[in-house]
């Protein structure tokens, strides 16, 4: 079972985001970076599948700066076998990213290609289905868990107000959401082993962004909230405010 997982290095979910002086980027001082949360679920799913199959290889692929090595090493420490870093600029044009990844994945023989459903920095939720379309492979998005049976994968996905079971022919692209299996933490042994695992770094075939970032801004501060009162006695006043001031009920 050979599985390729596309992962991205993003600011840690706790990170405080401040816009820098240029108004078109974030102030990177003090920001910790980590594997994007959904990508961690994708790595976990890949490792479990390989373990269940008892054979195969899990390859990690990322497009990013050299610092993404650290994120790849984390995935290797979790148990992935090898990693590829395409060094290049990541823009807000998801299609440009998808083209770069697709160029690398074109013609590659693997059973499954896993991505996170959404990267925690640009929140675009688009690269997975785009990579699938560009490489001509079938794709299921929003997969919380799946089972492989022969040449198909049976995927469980959440949709508005319900759930679906979808069967897809392999090789397939699956965009993973949070699933039942919490991503594992790398053990010390894994961290040591990861240092020796192959990590190939090469320049990306870059595609110009056709999405121009005009301005990045911090969210408008919400008008300071107010504590209406304490305990159940505050409820009538809350209801009055919701109706008369906020027009919300």
């Amino acid at each position: 079972m050979n599985i390729i997982v596309c992962i991205k290095r993003v600011p840690d979910t706790e990170a405080r985001i401040r816009v820098d002086g240029s108004g078109a980027g974030i102030d990177k001082t003090g920001i910790k970076y980590d594997l994007s949360p959904y990508d961690a679920f994708a790595v976990e799913a890949a490792l479990r599948l390989k373990e269940a199959a008892g054979e195969g290889e899990v390859t990690l692929l990322t497009l990013g700066e050299s610092s993404s090595q650290e994120t790849l090493r984390k995935g290797l420490a979790m148990g992935a076998d090898r990693a590829v870093l395409l060094t290049g600029e990541v823009t807000l044009d998801g299609l440009a990213t998808a083209k770069t990844l697709a160029a690398e994945l074109e013609g590659v023989e693997a059973d499954l290609f896993l991505l996170g459903i959404k990267a925690a920095d640009d929140d675009q939720q688009q690269v997975g289905p785009m990579v699938a379309a560009l490489t001509g492979r079938p794709c299921v998005s929003g997969v919380s868990s799946f089972e492989v049976n022969g040449s198909t994968a049976t995927c469980h996905r959440e949709v508005e107000g319900g759930s679906e079971v979808v069967e897809v022919d392999m090789p397939a692209v699956l965009c993973m959401t949070k699933g039942p299996n919490e991503p594992r933490l790398a053990a010390l042994k894994g961290i040591m082993a990861a240092k020796k695992k192959p990590l190939e770094e090469k320049p990306a075939t870059e595609h110009a962004s056709r999405v121009r970032l005009a301005r990045l801004s911090e969210p408008p501060a919400r008008a300071p909230g107010r504590i209406v009162g304490e305990g159940a006695d505050a409820v009538p006043e809350l209801v009055r405010l919701l109706r008369e001031e906020a027009n919300a009920i």
Binding site: R16, I17, L92, D121, L213, A214, L216, P219
Partner: peptide, 12 residues
Amino acid sequence: VFSGKAFANLEI
């Protein structure tokens, strides 16, 4: 972007 911690104005 960044889970609502910032807003991006973009031109397509």
